[in-house]
């Protein structure tokens, strides 16, 4: 009886599933099938939110394929996701042609039978093996949205590596941050793959200093020899990485997200209370206007 008196943000737990899989490059039909199959299994397993990696519906190195397969806002695929989202919340990654010839690299959230939120990737890598600026128009905002009782935010791949972008969610009081990625494994050395360490370092930062529950979902598989490393993980607010999927191989990671952990982390060392965004803003203006 005591439990029922607690506020909803304290007692709620969300059962989340991260899908670390390998979509087929440019084959939307096949990838739709993989999504539906994973979603159906997650529903059967009683999960409440399923998260797929960046560009899960299309594969990564799209090059000229992008304009041939980019999903249209008024297309039919969404209906299937909207229908499935009556039983489970869903986040997918997709190339989205919002206006004729204008494609964004997006993360899409479906819930309670509707497409509820779109995050358009802002940081489009365009160096070395990456050429996203040749394909996508960058997004320009970091808006939060509600997943159940939680305030959530999404970062896509390279955005995760810019701590000031996660900071934008932090000062919007986000308690569940989701990073979806297509990170190629690179930088082999005696200690392993250096790119794995990048993501895990940021996971530690988001969990410890932004005190958010953080789910990182990376794909696996190969595209012309470029391998995606997996290693998806869940970092609990204030506790660092506490669950990790396999590197290289397909895997599924089930995590329980508790908003109470955010509160507990803030009570132990309250970075959000002590943060001074107005000061940051003033200083940014002074620096940029100098």
């Amino acid at each position: 009886m005591i439990v029922s008196c607690l506020p909803v943000w304290y007692i709620s737990v969300m059962k989340v599933r991260a899908i670390q899989f390998s979509p087929a490059l440019g084959n939307i039909e096949k990838n739709m099938g993989l999504h539906v199959s994973h979603i159906s299994r997650a529903i059967a397993d009683g999960r409440e939110l399923i998260v797929f990696p960046e560009l899960s519906i299309s594969g990564y190195h799209l090059k000229d394929i992008a304009c041939e397969i980019a999903l249209k806002k008024d297309g039919s695929q969404w209906r299937e996701f909207e229908n499935l989202s009556k039983k489970i919340d869903i986040i997918i990654g997709a190339p989205l042609e919002e206006d004729a010839g204008i494609i964004y690299n997006t993360a899409l959230y479906f819930s309670r039978g509707k497409w509820r939120h779109t995050h358009r990737k802002v940081q489009l890598p365009n160096y070395g093996m990456f050429e996203e600026r040749m394909i996508f128009k960058p997004g320009d905002e970091f808006r939060t949205f509600k997943i159940g009782t939680m305030t959530a935010g999404i970062l896509i791949c390279r955005e995760i590596l810019f701590p000031m972008l996660a900071y934008l969610y932090f000062i919007q009081k986000t308690d569940f941050l989701i990073g979806i990625s297509n990170s190629p494994q690179r930088g082999i050395g005696k200690d392993g793959i250096s790119s794995f360490q990048l993501w895990e370092t940021m996971g530690y930062v988001f969990s410890q200093f932004y005190q958010q529950n953080y789910l990182f979902v990376n794909r696996v598989g190969f595209e012309d020899g470029i391998g995606f490393g997996g290693g998806s993980f869940f970092a609990r607010a204030g506790q660092g990485i506490c669950q990790k999927a396999k590197y290289v191989d397909e895997d599924v990671l089930d995590a329980e997200i508790r908003p109470a952990d955010v509160r507990r982390a803030r009570l132990s060392s309250n970075y959000l209370r002590d943060e001074q965004p107005q000061l940051v803003l003033r200083e940014l203006q002074r620096i940029l206007n100098a």
């Binding site: 494994q185 392993g192 793959i193 190969f222 020899g225 590197y247 290289v248």
Partner: peptide, 15 residues
């Protein structure tokens, strides 16, 4: 140029 052989093996076998 030292490498973590178990991980490289896993990557190459998977590839």
């Amino acid at each position: 140029l030292k490498i973590r052989c178990d991980l490289v093996e896993k990557i190459l076998v998977t590839a």
